[in-house]
C-alpha cells in the first residue's frame, strides 16, 4: 500500500472525459418493471404502471448500452465501463485493493425520462481523495456522469463515489 494515492497521474486525470454511452430507446416495459422492483411488494404509483414517465432513479443503461465509445486515446473501448472509468488507460497506477464499495451518490436532476427517449451518458473523472480507514489507506474515486436526452436536455448530473481499500 502506498503512502499516498494522490500521485501526479491521479491528479492529472481530474476532469478528463472517459466514455460516451448511448442507450436503447426507453420502453414502457422498462419503466414498469423498474417501478415494480423498487416499490415491491406494493403496487407502484399508477403513473409508472402507465409509464407516463420514468422514476428519477431509473437507469436505461442497466442491461447494456446501444452504443459505447471510449473517449480516451489509450482505450480501444472493447470493455464497457458502466459505472466506472478505465483507470489503467488514464495512467492511474494499478494498486491492488481488497474491496471496492459504493460510497455514495450526489445527483442533480433536470428533465424527466419518458418512454421513447434515448439517453446519452458522458463520464468524466471527478475529484479524488484518500482517508485512513480501519484496514489502511482508502481511495475515494469520484466519477461524474452527465445524462442528456435526444434533444440535448440535461436529465441528470451525478457524482458517484467509489471507495477502494
Amino acid at each position: 500500500m502506498p503512502d499516498t494515492y494522490m500521485v501526479p497521474e491521479v491528479l492529472a486525470a481530474i476532469g478528463r472525459e472517459c466514455s460516451r454511452s448511448t442507450s436503447f430507446p426507453i420502453s414502457t416495459s422498462d419503466i414498469r418493471k423498474w417501478a415494480l422492483a423498487v416499490y415491491w411488494p406494493e403496487t407502484p404509483p399508477q403513473a409508472f404502471i402507465d409509464a407516463e414517465y420514468a422514476p428519477e432513479d431509473f437507469d436505461p443503461f442497466a442491461w447494456g448500452p446501444a452504443k459505447y465509445e471510449s473517449l480516451l486515446p489509450e482505450d480501444d473501448g472493447s470493455v464497457i465501463y458502466r459505472h466506472g472509468i478505465n483507470q489503467k488507460a488514464l495512467g492511474i497506477p494499478e494498486w491492488e485493493f481488497m474491496v471496492g464499495v459504493n460510497g455514495g451518490m450526489d445527483c442533480k436532476y433536470g428533465v424527466r425520462m419518458h418512454a421513447g427517449d434515448v439517453i446519452t451518458d458522458v463520464k468524466s473523472v471527478g475529484q479524488w481523495s484518500e482517508r485512513q480507514g480501519k484496514t489502511g489507506l482508502m481511495l475515494m474515486t469520484r466519477v461524474v456522469s452527465v445524462w442528456t436526452n435526444q434533444r440535448g436536455e440535461e436529465v441528470k448530473r451525478t457524482i458517484n463515489t467509489g471507495i477502494s481499500y
Binding site: N102, G104, Y109
Partner: peptide
Amino acid sequence: GEILGMEVQF
C-alpha cells in the same frame, strides 16, 4: 412535484 437533487453516503 419534482425531485431536484439528492445526495447520500452509504
